[in-house]
Design a protein around this nucleic acid. Structure first.
Length: 216
DNA sequence: GACCAGGCACATC
DNA sequence: GATGTGCATGGT
């Protein structure tokens, strides 16, 4: 177990503080947010979720009820609204046909089983599945996103085109299997990515810019 | 106006 | 298995 991963985590936590993720109040809201935020700025996702909330649509039965077309209208601000409406509908179809629309029942499944099931839904890929597992259901899995790849490849821990499972394994074998830590670490990585490690990096004030964390 | 954002599926080679 | 493309709004 490489202690450098814990050191980076500690450094980020000290610098930015707890992030309080996921920004959602229910299991269902987190799942919908996870789909809506695919390649999309979170601010736009919030607008879409607020639309659903204000019309009391943010529950499995309500969203299952309405047409895909009207769902697409409500989530318009989140972008890719047609494809995302289809994806949300795909998830609901799965939830109701296989689990009676019961999210708590779904959450009782074992991590590996639930992950495989989520990945069968068209529109739920590895990152969305892992976000749902970790943040909606509290399962110990590490979420890899574009920021994770960018930050840790710039710091020479991985190659720019390392695969998702490769990166995930790197973190999971070098960290304690702790839901709280996985939760906070990913959130801190996103915060770091948004503020310092964009495509045009602002490395000057990045708390990791001191090379002490770099691999030789 | 260009560039970017907390991916994914699908086509093609 | 690797690479390219469509999906779309809203902020900088």
């Amino acid at each position: 177990m490489e202690p450098v991963f814990i050191k980076i985590y500690d450094r980020l936590l000290k610098e930015f503080g707890p992030q309080g993720w996921w920004p959602g109040e229910s299991i269902f809201e987190i799942i919908i947010g996870a789909i809506l935020t695919q390649n999309t700025a979170w601010g736009n996702v919030e607008k879409a979720i607020n639309n659903l909330k204000q019309h009391n649509l943010l529950t499995p039965p309500e969203l299952h009820q309405i047409s895909e077309k009207s769902l697409a209208r409500w989530i318009r601000p989140a972008g890719y609204f047609n494809i995302k409406a289809t994806r949300i509908k795909n998830f609901l179809q799965f939830l109701f046909s296989q689990h009676q629309g019961d999210l708590l029942q779904l959450g009782e499944l074992k991590l590996s089983v639930l992950r495989e099931k989520l990945l069968t839904v068209n529109g739920i890929g590895p990152e969305t599945a892992d976000s749902i597992l970790l943040y909606a259901f509290g399962k110990p899995i590490f979420v890899v996103d574009a920021y994770t790849r960018r930050i840790f490849s710039r710091h020479k821990f991985i190659s720019e085109k390392a695969s998702y499972p490769e990166i995930q394994q790197l973190f999971m074998t070098n960290l304690p299997q702790d839901v709280g830590l996985f939760n906070e670490f990913h959130a801190l990585i996103v915060h770091l990515g948004k503020n310092f490690c964009q495509r045009k990096p602002r490395c000057g004030k990045c708390p990791l810019s001191a090379r002490v964390y770099f691999r030789p």
